[in-house]
Design a binder for these strands. Structure first.
Length: 554
RNA sequence: GGGCUUGUGGCUUAGCCAGGAUAGAGCGCCGGGCUUCUAACCCGGAUGUCGAGGGUUCGAAUCCCUCCAGGCCCGCCA
């Protein structure tokens, strides 16, 4: 609805100015939309931008399609305001379940995220991937796209070979109640230590890798067992994080089904291809000086080759391919894209996120230096439980526990998704345990307050009559929601949604403080209740898209 | 050494791609607000050479160049 108005204004500006680019942007405090096109025209027409803006405003105001839009020139700026009727109509839509869901699209999207190597538990770095990916996934579904979420299981890497070697050669005393992924990490760390002490054993690891690529039954079974043990642990963590994958795609499948061999055969006919024992591509024409090696001289494939097969498959089965990957994959990702382009295959859109480090330095699974997602969840839940118990001692323990779990997840997810991915961060317990402003629980709290009002109000007849600036500001924010969803999937920026939800909570809190709802009367009361319902519904939809529970009480 | 990327009040951060109206927030700090719809809240105040320098432009946090600092990458690992 609002995007229609945007198009109307943009079209009108283009007609009136004869320019393609009319600089139409959000007007902030000044207007609903604003344009700075007068500056550009000033030079061309040799008149002052103020004069031009005044002229344009006068011409635009006369148009038939501007019945619901008012336009004014403020200095050199053109400011557009939507009529109250437009805002009020949009607001009524916002009270309906599913608000913000965009029309169904045909384009099939595949989104890969997390895809951590199964050699130890997910840590606070991996879950940045999970949370960015899952929020994007929820946004795509909200935006009407048929979507499949995939986890790419690196089940034949050197790391896994080391785990398998560790399990078969080291003494393993089981720890009671230990999750599979933590067990695997313990073995992986010990195996690395053992290999450092006995470098001659490295050959045994190499042999395992060759055997698995050749399809040796016993070795394949050992790899599968180790990977499954770790993956089962991941599944539990991912579920706690509220993230769901539709499909786990195993890397080794692309060896077994012949896809890797096929793609290598195709690659070998490329003019960029060189074979001198190893098989590699010269991508210097695409700006990469390093050799892009796809097959070792012993005949085994490398990760890049299997990745090429995986992405070829994705490109042929989906219309849009999106990967969420760590910044360490930037180079290999760019090489992958360059190669797919040369092969004439569809290329993925890659969202890279920068690393999360610890105050004492970067994380390392191999060295055992990491904060696992499980410990983070446990600790934040423990703190949340303390908080809930202080605030709501009267609630039964099971209910407090459930609220604490939701609050903890909200704190963790929001803390991560609010930061744009290109920023490298340092993990900080104090921030992770903060439930105050600019946090997930803060937004949940605004929602719970709205629910509380609505519950006390009982039945009422909806109507909208916006009377003051608090109401208007809140209403304007509510009706932006569908456009925010659209921006998130267009720009692949989930933090836009995080910022939106927080601003909505801010505006609701101000409204809540200054404008009594239940104590007002008549039309004012009904209108404010309608506004509360629209806010509650929009917050609930936004929170759900962020993967955060919209608690009715807390 | 080369490539990519980040640098915004004491701390964390939005805005940068598509230059424009007083650079938005939060934490912390100072002051105020709970017999009133959940104070995980609200209101007011102090704090900014937007890393440094140059350039383009009527106009630069935003575009270009140089430099400085942090992160990541540069393997027949994944």
């Amino acid at each position: 609805m609002l995007s229609t108005l945007y198009n109307t204004i943009e079209g009108a500006l283009r007609e009136v100015t004869g320019r393609d680019e009319v600089f139409l942007v959000e007007g902030g405090a000044h207007a609903d939309l604003a344009s700075t096109v007068a500056f550009g025209l000033a030079k061309q027409e040799r008149k002052s931008p103020v004069e031009i803006a005044r002229d344009l405003a006068a011409r635009l105001a006369k148009r038939d399609d501007f019945t619901e839009i008012s336009v004014e020139a403020l200095g050199p700026y053109l400011n557009f305001h939507f009529s109250r009727a437009v805002i009020e109509r949009a607001l009524l839509e916002a009270t309906l379940p599913g608000y913000g869901t965009l029309p169904r699209k045909e384009e099939r999207v595949v989104l890969e995220h997390t895809s951590a190597n199964p050699n130890g538990p997910l840590h606070v770095g991996h879950i940045r991937n999970t949370i960015l990916g899952d929020t994007l996934a929820r946004s795509f579904r909200k935006a009407g796209y048929p979507l499949e979420v995939q986890y790419y299981v690196n089940d034949m890497g050197r790391q896994i070979a080391i785990v398998v070697w560790g399990f078969s050669t080291l003494k393993d005393t089981p720890v009671h109640g230990e999750k599979g992924d933590h067990h695997v990490a313990r073995i992986y760390i010990a195996a690395n230590r053992a290999l450092e002490a006995r470098p001659e054993s490295v050959a045994e690891v190499d042999r395992l890798m060759q055997q698995v690529e050749n399809g040796d039954q016993a070795t394949v079974a050992l790899f599968r067992k180790a990977v499954t043990l770790c993956l089962d642990g991941f599944t539990v963590t991912l579920q706690r994080l509220g993230a769901r994958h539709d499909r786990f795609v195993w890397e080794s499948d692309f060896i077994r089904n012949g896809d890797t061999a096929r793609v290598l055969a195709k690659v070998s006919h490329m003019e960029e291809c060189h074979e001198d024992g190893k098989l590699w591509l010269d991508l210097s024409a695409s700006g990469f000086e390093k050799e892009y090696v796809l097959r070792r001289s012993d005949g085994t494939s490398v990760y890049a080759a299997r990745d090429l097969a995986y992405h070829t498959w994705k490109g042929r089965n989906f219309d849009r391919v999106i990967d969420v990957l760590g910044a360490d994959h930037k180079l290999i990702g760019a090489q992958l894209i360059a190669t797919l382009r040369l092969l004439g295959e569809k290329t993925p859109e890659i969202v890279h996120f920068e690393f999360v480090s610890l105050p004492e330095g970067s994380m390392s699974t191999r060295a055992g230096k990491f904060v696992s997602a499980d410990e983070l969840l446990d600790e934040v839940e423990r703190r949340a439980m303390e908080e809930v118990t202080t605030r709501r001692p009267e609630l039964p323990e099971t209910e407090r526990r459930a609220i604490a779990r939701s609050v903890a997840l909200a704190a963790i997810r929001y803390d991560i998704v609010r930061i744009s991915p290109e920023k490298s961060t340092v993990f900080d317990w104090k921030e992770a345990l903060d439930f105050e402003r600019q946090s997930g629980p803060y937004i949940q709290y605004a929602h719970a307050r709205a629910c509380s009002i609505l519950e006390k109000a009982g039945e009422f007849e909806e109507c909208i009559m916006l009377e003051n600036e608090h109401e208007m500001a809140l209403a304007r924010q509510i009706i932006r929601f569908p456009m925010v969803i659209e921006s998130v999937v267009r720009e692949l920026k989930p933090h836009l949604l995080a910022a939106y939800a927080r601003e909505l909570a801010d505006l609701f809190n101000a409204f809540y403080h200054f404008e009594p709802v239940l104590k007002s009367e008549g039309m004012t009361r009904r209108s404010r209740l309608t506004l509360v319902r629209a806010t509650q519904n929009t917050l609930a939809e936004a929170l759900q898209t962020l993967g955060i529970d919209a608690l009715r009480t807390m």
